[in-house]
Design a protein around this nucleic acid. Sequence first.
DNA 1: CATATGACACTAT
DNA 2: AATAGTGCCATAT
Length: 105
Amino acid sequence: MESKSFAQKVYELTRRIPRGQVSTYQSIARAMKKPGASRAVGNALNKNPFAPKVPCHRVVRSTGEIGGFASGPKKKAAMLAKEGVIVKRKCVDLSRYLYDFKTKR
DNA sequence: CATATGACACTAT
DNA sequence: AATAGTGCCATAT
């Protein structure tokens, strides 16, 4: 029985993304056993009631493109760059910065 | 319950 | 490579 809402799970996962790394909408959708819900993930993050609490700016598209952002995708790119993620033409190198939720620490 | 919306993904052109 | 069309899923109305 899922006591937690879909969006709730999205926040929990997004919250784990360490500084200097990123994740994708699809990766998050998969992590919650709902592959294909990548769009719904974006919707949840768009609401993002836990603004600074959840690093939603660390979530990009599966293609590496920055994607959207409530305050403007430009802002998103700037924040990422500030955290150490190299953003080239609104894109990031997923093979380098993608965070694996299975990673133990 | 039906329709519309959107911080996505994939395929075809 | 860039654009358009289609599919997908969770919410809002």
